[in-house]
């Protein structure tokens, strides 16, 4: 080695404290030090404790409850009702609109982030073949799903009729000053039919 050569950068390795029994089990074959492993396990435990709350966030704050509003239709005024409830890692939704089939579903997370599907369709469209009673849009059962947004949720319902027609409902829900804002779009076949925005009051 010449005088001009750099000194090797050597770090002194400290003594590893003897791990406890649990750490001993967890550290078998590990390549990281005990303090690092302890920190990692602590982080994992905290994450595990917070995980269910993160999933419940599928229903944004301010949406849960029963709501009621009135909308004008051709024959006068008609009630609009909505009910939302956090349920496990998803939520339950029920919406009644004038001149439309009520939309009710328990929505559970999918593998896609912030996307929820009706619990009945969790295992696939053709699940009804195994006798589990899941829905099939081509048999007239609505395909219901939802996504959460920065300000609320959007619930969708697709219904294919026996003659091949389609009704597609899109209902955006968000919380505004203690009320529920509802924006409804309905598309029948290729034509957009109904659109209204409405503020619903708490229904007790």
């Amino acid at each position: 080695m010449t005088n001009g050569a750099k000194k090797a950068n050597v770090q002194r390795i400290g003594t590893v404290a003897r791990p406890g029994r649990l750490e001993d089990i967890c550290m078998r074959g590990a390549t990281i030090s005990a303090p690092t492993a302890r920190l990692s396990w602590t982080c994992l435990a905290v994450a595990w404790l917070l995980w269910p709350q993160a999933l419940v966030a599928g229903l944004p704050e301010g949406l849960a409850g029963k709501w009621r509003g009135v909308v004008e239709v051709a024959s006068g005024e008609a009630d609009v009702r909505a009910s939302l409830r956090a349920l496990g890692d998803g939520f339950e939704v029920a919406i009644e609109l004038p001149e439309a089939r009520p939309l009710r579903a328990e929505l559970v997370p999918t593998e896609r982030p912030k996307v929820f599907q009706a619990a009945a369709s969790r295992r696939g469209l053709f699940g009804f073949f195994d006798g589990s009673g899941r829905s099939n849009p081509f048999d007239g059962e609505p395909l219901i799903w939802a996504r959460s947004t920065a300000v609320g949720i959007v619930v969708y319902g697709l219904t294919i009729t026996a003659d091949g027609g389609v009704t597609l409902l899109r209902i955006a829900l968000s919380s505004v000053d203690g009320r529920l804002e509802m924006a409804v779009q309905e598309r029948i076949d290729a034509d957009p039919r109904t659109r209204f925005d409405l503020l619903l009051e708490p229904a007790g």
Partner: peptide
């Protein structure tokens, strides 16, 4: 077939106003 996993639904309607073909898919963002 799993529409919520991105499988498309395709169907057609033979009606008085023509043949209507529909192709529907749920996008990854819902």
């Amino acid at each position: 077939m799993a529409p919520l996993a991105g499988d498309p639904l395709r169907w057609a309607k033979l009606g008085d106003t023509g043949i209507h073909v529909f192709s529907f898919v749920v996008l990854p963002n819902g």
